[in-house]
């Protein structure tokens, strides 16, 4: 099952990256979201998988009975999910503002900071 999830990670990465390479900001954002999910899964798999035993100590006990899922990657991913969400929200709204200001969500139209036919450096002293 680790292998299956590893393959799934590969699929997430591939599609995320493919979308990030498209020129539409909104598609790039979707790609970023997929990439983020892929990386979360990657951490999850890296910490090794185990089935259906949440890392929770039963009431009254000091340590869980039997094997449990690895809790640390879960904590890490939880942090990463929330951070990723914050970033996603910011970039999404940034994209929206850019769309409103620049009139399109295509990267071709985003050439204010680096104009397409930028000024040539002056040949003077």
């Amino acid at each position: 099952m680790d292998v299956a999830i590893a393959l799934l990670v590969g699929a997430f990465m591939t599609l995320g990256i493919f979308l990030m390479l498209s020129r539409s900001v909104i598609r790039m954002l979707l790609g970023l979201a997929l990439l983020g999910n892929g990386i979360n899964l990657l951490i999850f798999v890296s910490g090794r998988l185990s089935r259906e035993a949440p890392p929770i100590v039963p009431p009254g006990a000091y340590v869980p009975e039997g094997a449990i899922a690895n809790p640390l990657p879960q904590a890490l991913i939880l942090t990463a999910i929330v951070i990723g969400f914050a970033m996603f929200a910011y970039l999404l709204i940034l994209g929206m503002r850019a769309y409103q200001s620049l009139d399109a969500d295509h990267t071709d139209t985003m050439r204010l900071a680096e104009p397409e036919d930028g000024p040539r450096p002056p040949l003077s002293y």
Binding site: I5, L41, F44
Partner: peptide, 11 residues
Amino acid sequence: LIFMLFGAPDL
């Protein structure tokens, strides 16, 4: 759901 199936309810 994958997180759930592999024992990560919080996630």
